[in-house]
Design a protein around this nucleic acid. Structure first.
Lengths: 333, 333
DNA sequence: CTGAAAGCGCTTACAG
DNA sequence: CTGAAAGCGCTTACAG
């Protein structure tokens, strides 16, 4: 079924059908109504490929993302998808973790082919940043980045969460409980100092407190566990801010194994507020981040890039919020 | 840049370029080599839309999935994506949880538009099954289902994990530890009896043991917690098989709150082996499921549907595997 | 406000 | 093995 069939059924030329489909203003109201009714009756769907070819634009985007099984990435993807679908955009995914390094450029070029639509890169990690750099010029692209990366490398429109303030808030909270200092298990950062780490440092500096060497974690509970073992062995450690909730889970595990009570002897704070955090043992104090909102913002930003005439909606993502649960408290006497 | 530019640069007609791109056999080897070199030099990428329009086929597929922040769904998506990308397919996502019920049919019709490519539906839940039913006839579709659903409703090619055997194994394991019976917190199932529940029942029947009423859980730790509170209140409960690890996390939380020691007083077993499970407190005994492998199989199956000439690769997904950790043990005396 | 024409970049028989 | 022709289903100026 094509536009011509609709035209025949509605008694108009097929160009008129095209105009109706595309919301062209100069169509008589009665004609529009008739054509729309016909489209509905016939269940007609315009051929995407033909539209893309003729117009040179596709209502499609691909999200480049390291690993969708991690909560933050998955939630951001869902935010993007929700907003995109509402606006008639198809959403593709390309998982970077399974792309061989020497194929990255080719892969990005393929999904970033202008005829395949726009690109959204989640550039919170090395893989994402490398992908962002590999985007061929001329491709519409926006990125989700760490705030401190916003101007760096390839300057492209970007969104970010206020990780620095969030970490600052969490660290201050721990200091105000009376801890002499706060240790940090860091998520990997391409720059070596994530915004989360930065906010943590700032809070310690503000309080004129000793800044311990941060421990390098990965993204997984296992790496949190390994960092946690080192921390558990140090009797001076009474408070730990972790770069994400998975790291915090690993740290909790290490503390338990070492017989150090949380929160009586050590306070542990996470980052993200994954849906499971409230059920960890003990329930995890953490900083909630609105990844879904960030994803929506990401799409809105892309819309603005694609079509500068669109009214710019202001960002919707909620600000970070400290969620106090059971894993934090005053230091032991 | 088009096929014609490549042709000019390579000194052939543009049809020959098309043949090379499509791996047509009847091209002289020297010509092919020259054209391929030119394509590489120019960094040429054929226009997807034009190919789709002219050939009537798109190398693209859309995955319909309830919620990608849940581990099993996300991992399956990654398996699909990995296999699809390796085969030059673009992968789209459509998250069903944010589709309004009255828009489901229209949404499925849109992403399932033949010109948009094939469909893979993760039909483990009501949303997925409804989506599967809404797929218009004539669209290439495969599904990931529960084994017991394979023949039901819309018969389409499908893959599944052996949940029944997995649950049987886990339940037998608990019975062999000496528990008089095993309770079950069930994931939602459109049929009211998931395969996981079925395997559990079968193991109890085999052992000629009383079958307690299963508790209805949702997919979240919270619903596990609620079910767990009921179980914790019943002193006869010594072993619980949960429909997934999130439910198990909630049950662990409820047991802790009620002061019932795991595993000394109650054994808790999960399902899936999410990456966090080894770090729960106590570390969770669970059944590992190979979602990534299932996703790959899903794509392979789709390839077979799309192109019956393809050699049928046999399924690769690993069999379920019981992972014994700390949350299970013999019943109290 | 609506119709006729050209063209988007490919693929696919059809000749040669 | 390779070239010329038609056509995939739309959109986009251009007339009227």
């Amino acid at each position: 079924m094509s536009i011509r069939d609709v035209a025949r059924a509605a008694g108009v030329s097929y160009q008129t059908v095209s105009r109706v489909i595309n919301g062209h203003p100069r169509v008589r109201e009665s004609t529009r109504a008739r054509v729309e009714a016909t489209i509905r009756d016939l269940g007609f769907q315009p051929n995407r490929a033909a539209r893309a070819l003729a117009s040179g634009q596709t209502r499609a985007l691909t999200v480049l993302v390291r690993d969708t099984t991690l909560y933050g990435y998955a939630a951001t993807l869902q935010g993007i998808e929700e907003a995109a679908r509402a606006d008639g955009f198809a959403v593709g995914v390309c998982v970077l973790d399974t792309v061989a390094p020497d194929e990255l450029a080719a892969t990005v070029a393929r999904v970033g082919d202008p005829t395949a639509g726009a690109l959204i890169v989640i550039a919170w990690d090395r893989a994402g940043i490398r992908a962002l750099r590999a985007v061929p010029p001329g491709v519409a692209v926006v990125a989700a980045v760490e705030a401190s990366m916003a101007e760096e490398s390839r300057p492209c429109p970007a969104v970010w969460l206020d990780d620095a303030t969030a970490a600052l808030t969490a660290t201050r909270y721990l200091l105000e409980l009376g801890h002499r200092t706060v240790h940090h298990v860091a998520i990997p950062s391409p720059t070596g100092r994530s915004d989360r780490m930065h906010g943590w440092r700032q809070a310690l500096r503000e309080a004129r407190v000793r800044t311990p060497t941060p421990l390098e974690g990965g993204w997984t509970p296992r790496s949190g566990y390994e960092a946690g073992r080192a921390l558990a062995a140090d009797p001076d450690v009474t408070a730990v801010l972790c770069g994400n909730d998975d790291l915090a889970l690993g740290v909790l595990h290490a503390m338990r194994e070492a017989g150090r009570k949380v929160p009586d002897e050590v306070s542990v704070v996470g980052f993200d507020d994954v849906p499971q955090a409230a059920f960890y043992a003990p329930a995890l104090t953490t900083v909630r981040q609105d990844f879904v909102g960030l994803g929506r913002d990401c799409f809105t930003l892309l819309r603005g890039v694609l079509d500068p005439l669109t009214e710019k909606a202001s960002p919707q993502a909620a600000r970070p919020e400290l969620i106090v649960r059971e894993s934090s408290g005053p230091p032991p006497r």
